[in-house]
Design a protein around this nucleic acid. Structure first.
Length: 880
DNA sequence: ATGGTCACG
DNA sequence: ACGTACGTGACCATA
């Protein structure tokens, strides 16, 4: 059966360009749109198996619509040169694929596709249109489906008439009426003012078309809406015309001429090489090896056994890629299965039982001069340490490198790294081991090949990663910050923190009693029993049985979150009981029961896992258990910290935290003179902000004024919006807006910086921290208001939060060095974003109280001082 | 698996 | 007209 695929070339190229980071070849040629286009094509060819395929492009400056409406597409931003220069490459790409492309002077790709689908439809061909443009949904019919790209170009969503009906309640042709009413800002189709998607859909469900709406305008509910419709009759009609895709363009291309019989693998490979798409090369389907090209050698590796080990001793070289395979994600517990090793043409697999008794290997492993390339060296270091082995000489970590190159793709996996930077394919662990309850070890030959692939992938990726890091000037960030930090974190994780199990149990007993009492009270107040932990059941009790007002909704029903409940508290005594129940329940399940489960059987301590490649901003995160969210704000919860104690008799817990680090960093990078002055004078920053914003003297700042100023300062760091501030302070949006305006008039340097950073983000597509950490913001130029606004706030927040992360990471490295140099026994145990926690012998207390702030405050020189507060006590609770 | 809620900076 | 404060992870209920 025939299957005709039509691709909207401009739409896909645009999507791909904005979805992918701005990649370039070593020669400086930008290729991200080409790459996205290519992945899409490979996917379409494989999954849709078209018998006919073509790509349509817009052509020429004069599109016939212009003559009808001068401003058509006027609102659209100019195509950036980085994208325009890729169009010729995309044409080359299509030629390499032997796919027909077509353009027609004065017409858009839409119209070409509209015309061809009509012809195909008449012949009853199965037809699929691929585009990112929702307008095209109007082409859908029984034979024609439209595939919309989502998440850039990596995923597609197929629309048939049924799906359009389900999603919009409209027939395909009514999509035109929808656009006619709501308009489309990206195409500068005006629509009717005041009518968005919701209103437009409501009108169409009732009347069916733009014309019918206009005829029945008297019956439309809403005075303002009626007025808008009456005053914009012409605009509505014209918008509908603009949104209508032409189905009778003078396209001379015969549908039959788009017949497709596959591509020449060798030609395509040549093009991929030119584009430096190394990872795509293996995806080219070749029926027979192309003439003149040697068949790729099958993957070869050797398994080392106890008997043959001696023969392999001289294969252990420097540098060499090593992958330590473990059974499970938590390397504090996981058994080690074996090692993959690779360098040049050597690829080895060494089972654990062989490796642990192979002396030459263990010696090589612990030899600092033998350089190792790894995937997650911290995992290797800690995992091996639990089994009594030492690994030294880690010289490159592809996990950290890949994270730095793209922090938005959190937790890079080796299979994805391999597909981006290496030739060899690596299966996802899930494919080898299964997931969840179905997880199990595969046959030993499957396992050894999988691990061997991993080592080979690391070996091949390193040079590519090095080069890309160099292009972004990020080698220093890796070599001097993240890599040394990973070894500091390894020590902290392995060291662990002592937790007093009995203390927790005792608190648990007290909580149980209180919770039981509360449960009884709640049931009585509700008049029946129910599951208080179920938002659904709780909602029924509150809003149906007790008939309390619904203040906020979630996707699934009325919200019962704490901020809503607090507002409902005056209505009914059950609310306070529920709030307390929630609070205590959280303490019991997460912090008593959860934490107790994490106490390690071997060490009686908790050993967290710091994730160094998860956050988009450069912060760490902590799991199993998460030690970065131990309660502190409420006294009942804060008591949990009494269970965190030193691991040795007579030692102390010492905590040091940066004071206002984010605002100090804002002062530095914005250069705002007022903010800098405040910090140089050592003032309380919230009081100072209140003085400036309210125009009062220091003695006249009330606690309310200080509280409001504090909220404004938080808002500034988060990328302020009047709505967010109004929510936080419980004031109107207008009042919040006034605060912000006054803040910006006093701290004009901050305002200027915020405008500039957003502008820069729009230009570059990313923002950076002081140490050149980078975060891409693909939505910064989105036409979707929400996505764009979010990206803009992120552009303001990330340099601040990310630089703070840089600073404390630097301090941790210096701190560890300092402890070693001075021969101190004190140990760094925890990092909580702006705080470091140590355990300290009594005779080092004095020295540490001096040293820790000194090292932290001098980690990075800014144009304002950094300030650190230190406290110590018998437990983490007492270090306050 | 997903969403709601809540703990932290 | 839109619908939000920035960054995380754990637990519970429910599909």
């Amino acid at each position: 059966m025939s299957h005709f695929v039509l691709i909207d070339g401009n739409s896909i190229a645009n999507r791909a360009f904005y979805a992918l980071p701005l990649l370039s070849t070593s020669a400086g040629l930008h290729t991200n749109a080409v790459l996205g286009f290519t992945t899409m094509l490979l996917k379409v060819l494989e999954e849709m198996e078209p018998t006919h395929i073509m790509v349509a492009f817009d052509a020429g400056k004069v599109v016939f619509r212009h003559t009808e409406y001068a401003e058509y597409k006027g609102g659209r931003a100019k195509t950036p040169p980085e994208l325009s220069e890729q169009f010729p490459l995309i044409r080359e790409l299509l030629d390499a694929f032997s796919i027909k492309r077509f353009e027609l002077e004065g017409y858009e790709a839409d119209d070409i596709i509209g015309t061809l689908t009509k012809r195909a439809d008449e012949q009853n061909w199965k037809t699929t249109v691929i585009t990112g443009d929702k307008d095209m949904l109007q082409l859908v019919s029984d034979h024609v489906s439209v595939a919309l790209t989502r998440k850039g170009v990596s995923e597609i969503e197929l629309y048939t008439p049924q799906e359009i009906q389900e999603k919009y309640g409209l027939a395909p042709l009514q999509i035109i009426d929808l656009k006619g009413l709501m308009g489309d800002s990206s195409d500068n189709i005006p629509g009717v003012p005041g009518v968005g998607e919701k209103t437009a859909l409501k009108l169409l469900h009732e009347y069916g078309s733009v014309e019918a709406v206009l005829e029945n305008v008297d019956r439309v509910s809403g005075k303002k809406l009626q007025e808008n419709l009456r005053e914009n009759v012409d605009k509505a009609k014209m918008s509908k015309e603009l949104a209508t895709i032409l189905r009778e363009a003078p396209v001379e291309l015969d549908v039959e001429a788009t017949g497709y019989s596959g591509y020449d693998g060798a030609v395509l490979a040549e093009f991929f090489k030119k584009m430096e798409f190394k990872s795509l090369l293996p995806k080219i389907k070749v029926d027979a090896p192309a003439k003149g090209e040697e068949k790729a050698a099958p993957f070869q590796f050797e398994v080392v056994t106890a008997e043959t080990a001696d023969r392999f001793a001289d294969k252990l070289t420097s540098p060499m890629a090593i992958y330590v395979e473990m059974d499970g994600d938590n390397y504090h517990h996981a058994p080690i299965l074996g090692f993959g090793l690779s360098a040049d043409d050597t690829v080895l697999y060494v089972p654990w039982d062989v490796a642990k008794d192979w002396q030459a290997f263990c010696k090589w492993l612990a030899d600092d001069t033998q350089k190792k390339w790894t995937f997650d060296g911290k995992r290797d270091t800690v995992g091996l340490a639990w089994h009594g082995l030492e690994i030294l000489g880690i010289d490159f970590d592809v996990y950290l490198a890949s994270y730095l190159l793209n922090a938005t793709e959190s937790n890079p996996t080796l299979d994805s790294i391999a597909s981006q930077y290496a030739k060899v394919r690596v299966l996802a662990d899930e494919e080898v081991y299964g997931k969840g309850a179905k997880r199990m070890l595969p046959e030993s030959d499957v396992l050894s090949e999988h691990v061997a692939h991993k080592a080979a992938a690391i070996w091949q990726s390193v040079p590519v990663l090095r080069e890309q890091l160099a292009e972004n000037q990020m080698n220093e960030l890796l070599d001097d910050l993240e890599a040394p930090l990973s070894m500091v974190l390894a020590q902290m994780e392995k060291q662990g923190v002592k937790v007093n199990r009995d203390r927790l149990a005792q608190m648990g007993v007290e909580l149980d009693a209180k919770l039981e009492e509360l449960t009884g009270q709640i049931y009585e107040l509700a008049g029946r029993t129910f599951n208080i932990n179920s938002p659904k059941q709780l909602g029924e009790i509150l809003f149906d049985v007790l008939d309390l007002p619904v203040l906020k909704k979630t996707k699934t029903g009325p919200s019962t979150s704490a901020d809503v409940l607090e507002k409902l508290a005056p209505y009914h005594p059950i609310i306070d009981a529920i709030l307390t129940f929630r609070q205590l329940g959280k303490l019991r399940s997460t912090y008593i029961e959860g934490l107790t489960k994490e106490i390690h059987s071997q060490s009686s301590k908790v050993h967290t896992l710091y994730n160094q490649a998860t956050t988009a901003t450069g912060r760490l995160s902590s799991t199993d258990p998460n030690l970065q969210n131990i309660p502190i704000r409420m006294e009942e919860g804060r008591k949990i910290r009494e269970a965190f104690i030193p691991s040795e008799e007579g030692w102390y817990m010492l905590a040091a935290d940066y004071s206002q680090i984010e605002l100090r960093i804002l002062a530095h990078i914005s250069g705002d003179e007022n903010l800098i002055d405040a910090f140089r004078r050592g003032m309380d920053i919230h009081t100072r902000t209140a003085m400036d914003v309210f125009g009062v003297g220091e003695g006249e700042v009330t606690s309310l004024m200080r509280r409001q100023a504090k909220a404004v300062n938080f808002g500034i760091v988060y990328g302020i919006s009047d709505y967010g501030l109004s929510q936080n302070l419980g004031i109107t949006r207008k009042e919040a807006g006034d605060f912000i305006e006054r803040y910006f008039s006093v701290f004009s340097g901050v305002k200027h910086w915020m405008e500039e950073i957003v502008k820069q983000a729009k230009q570059d597509g990313y923002v950076t921290t002081l140490l050149n950490r980078r975060r891409y913001l693909p939505d910064i130029r989105s036409s979707n208001f929400n996505l764009r606004s979010f990206a803009e706030r992120t552009a303001m927040n990330t340099p601040i939060q990310g630089t703070a992360a840089d600073v404390i990471k630097l301090a941790m490295i210096r701190m560890q060095e300092s402890l070693r140099e001075k021969g101190l026994k004190s140990r760094m145990l925890l990092q909580v974003h702006d705080e470091l926690v140590f355990e300290v012998p009594q005779d080092e207390l004095e020295a540490m109280q001096q040293l820790v702030p000194e090292v932290m405050e001098s980690a990075l020189e800014l144009n304002v001082p950094l300030k650190v507060d230190v406290n110590y006590g018998q437990s983490w609770y007492d270090a306050k």
